[in-house]
Design a protein around this nucleic acid. Structure first.
Lengths: 148, 148
DNA sequence: CGCCATATTGAGACAATGTATCAGAAAAGC
DNA sequence: GCTTTTCTGATACATTGTCTCAATATGGCG
């Protein structure tokens, strides 16, 4: 594959990512990562199979890799009512997603003060709270302006 | 099917539910509804097929019915990292779920003050916020006590 | 740099899940 | 009850997901 500065940047970043997570850095994983990371709206796994299998990436590898990335919190899954599960690259430090129901772009945001809510829930139910998953849905300005 | 008071209660409730949503009340829909409503931890669609097909409910009907119920907000879907999508009956007035990662029981809760967060996000991103989906994960007291 | 131990990969067979169609059956409204 | 409309089940089919194993690439080390 061509070696533009931009792609090289990706390679370097991804290699570092793998080292940081203690996994071997393979070409296939980089391709899968790039595929999901380059689209803000995320993709389904079948999307990835359709796009990457012709490039010689096996189906099994795609499934294994997405599962791995999800376990490592490099990808996260998003799913609105009636939709299929899509996977979106996780920006480190950003835990939550704001999703356009029209174009599916995913904007991540950081600040959400649910600590108080979690404390309250814990007291009321006896649950040991481990974490939460928050998705906010709406329409982005572009789609609202009629572009979609 | 037998007509105990409890089951009759279900029938009455479900018929009313259908009338309220303007859909025909069929035996199949009642069976599917009961199947999901009677288990706090929810079920996958394949679960339902396995359980209900031998009772003479067709696969296609189960898929159609779950899709319908989800659109009417009678069922809602839940999915933690690495899990399959499960469907849980929605308690009217309760919008959010607290889920045990060990036994998958789903506890619903009402109060969450995200209005402020939504306002902030709207101002910062220009999105028209339509709603949100919040799942809190943890371990329930029973599982923490070693039951699972 | 080149070897070795280990982990990953791709192919392909297979299993499970999801979808479309259409004739027959049941529900709702008179 | 009778008609219209909607739903249902069976079937065939398409898609998605899983498994296994030999071949290959990776990372570590001398």
């Amino acid at each position: 594959m061509a070696g533009t500065t931009h792609e090289h940047q990706h390679q370097v970043d991804f290699a570092a990512l793998c080292r940081a997570h203690g996994i071997p850095c393979t070409d296939q994983r980089r391709v899968v990562w790039d595929f999901f990371a380059q689209h803000a709206q995320g993709h389904t796994i079948p999307d990835a199979v359709t796009a990457l299998a012709p490039q010689g990436i096996g189906r099994a590898t795609i499934y294994r890799t997405v599962e791995l990335f999800e376990r490592l919190h490099l990808l996260t899954s998003v799913r609105d009512t009636g939709e299929k599960v899509r996977y979106v690259a996780v920006c480190p430090g950003h835990a939550h997603t704001l999703i356009c129901r029209s174009c599916h772009q995913v904007v991540e945001f950081e600040d959400c003060d649910l600590a108080l809510l979690e404390k309250l829930l814990s007291e009321r139910t006896g649950f040991a709270i481990a974490g939460h998953h928050l998705e906010v849905y709406g329409t982005c300005p572009q789609c609202a302006a009629g572009r979609a």
